[in-house]
Computed example of a mutant assay.
Amino acid sequence: MHASSTHRPAVSACIIAFNEADRIGDCLASLAFCDEIVVVDSFSGDRTVEIAQAAGARVLQRPFEGYRSQKQYAVEQARHDWVLCLDADERVGDELRASILRVRDEGFPSAAGYRFARLSDYFGRFLRHGNAYPDRVLRLFDRRRGGWRGTREVHEAASVDGPVAVLAGDLIHYPYRSLEQQLAKTQRYARMMAEHEFARGKRATLAKLILSPAWRFWRGYILRAGFLDGWHGLVYAYVRANYVRQKAIMLWLLEHRQPIATPTASHDARD
Rank of each mutant, 00 (worst) to 15 (best):
W231S: 06
I24S: 05
I51C: 05
E153Y: 02
G233M: 03
Y67W: 09
R68C: 00
D87A: 10
Q77E: 12
S69G: 05
G146S: 01
L228E: 07
R145H: 11
W231N: 10
T186A: 00
R240Y: 03
C34K: 01
Q77R: 09
G107Q: 06
D89W: 06
H7G: 03
K247L: 13
A265H: 12
A194Q: 04
D161Q: 03
Y114A: 01
A241N: 01
H2R: 09
I210M: 14
R203I: 05
A168R: 14
R97K: 12
S69F: 02
A157N: 14
A3T: 09
V83R: 04
R118D: 00
F18D: 08
I51S: 05
R58K: 13
E156L: 00
N19L: 14
R240G: 01
I172C: 06
D142E: 04
D161S: 11
W82Q: 11
A3K: 15
G45N: 10
R125H: 10
A32C: 02
A10F: 08
A184H: 13
C85G: 02
E255W: 12
W82N: 11
W252E: 04
R136K: 08
L86G: 11
A13I: 03
R97F: 02
E76D: 15
G150E: 13
L96P: 10
Q246N: 07
R139C: 03
L254K: 10
V59H: 10
A88F: 08
D35H: 15
Y243D: 12
R136G: 01
G201C: 14
W82H: 09
A132S: 15
R144H: 07
L183G: 00
A21M: 09
H80W: 14
L253W: 07
R58H: 11
P163G: 06
E65L: 14
R152Y: 02
E106V: 06
R79S: 15
G113L: 04
Y67D: 00
E197G: 01
G130R: 01
M192I: 03
L60I: 15
F108P: 08
G93Q: 10
D271Y: 07
F18I: 07
T6W: 10
D161H: 11
F64Q: 12
G230K: 03
L206C: 06
P175K: 00
Q246Y: 03
L179I: 15
G113T: 04
L251G: 06
Q53G: 06
F108W: 14
L28D: 07
E50S: 09
F227Y: 13
Q187E: 15
Q182D: 02
F116Q: 01
R257Y: 13
